[in-house]
């Protein structure tokens, strides 16, 4: 928990730094017609910087207390990754083969391998879900979902 606190606070501090640099470039001052473009970002970055420093300081001071609870309870990291990695993988696949093919692959992978459901159910959901979303989004509401680099060639309808 301690390390997580420190990393998060440092990340916020870095964001504050970036914002401040950009705000100064935009003009952090008060022009003739009120605040300029960088005015609010500048002061926001100051507040964010100060509050993250405070959090950092607290984490260092009360470190031993925080260290008692691990950020991930035993075994949790594996559990979280079994959800997170397929999700990230699916998002990456969107770029390549588009939504529909990805949905099929992802659902089959997840339901069968992680969820250990029967093949029949897996295939049924894997085909039904993309079909229904296709009908609702693409056909009825005319919202084209991501096609990826090759999606249009794979599913030409």
């Amino acid at each position: 928990m301690k390390r997580a606190e420190i990393i998060t606070a440092l990340a916020l501090l870095v964001i504050a730094g970036f914002v401040m640099r950009e705000a100064i470039r935009l003009g952090p001052g008060w022009g003739e017609a009120g605040p300029r473009g960088g005015f609010f970002p500048f002061w926001l970055s100051v507040v964010l910087g100060l509050s993250s420093l405070w959090i950092l300081f607290q984490a260092l001071r009360h470190g031993s207390q925080l260290a008692r609870n691990a950020f991930f309870p035993p075994g949790a990291i594996r559990q979280v990754l079994t959800v997170f990695l397929p999700m990230a993988g699916a998002f990456a696949l969107f770029e390549v083969v588009g939504f529909y093919v990805t949905a099929l692959v992802y659902l089959v992978f997840y339901i069968r391998l992680t969820g250990r459901q029967s093949w029949a159910l897996t295939v049924a959901v894997g085909i039904l879900f993309p079909t229904v979303t296709f009908l609702i989004f693409e056909r009825w509401f005319l919202i084209p979902l991501p096609k990826g680099r090759f999606g249009e060639q794979l599913l030409p309808f």
Partner: peptide
């Protein structure tokens, strides 16, 4: 069952995000 609900919700969420600006 949760193993079906979880990925379905993730997919629907991704549609939700995509549809904001139509970008991945």
């Amino acid at each position: 069952p949760a193993p079906i609900l979880t990925p379905s919700i993730i997919l629907l969420s991704s549609i939700g995000a995509y549809a904001v600006n139509n970008t991945t």
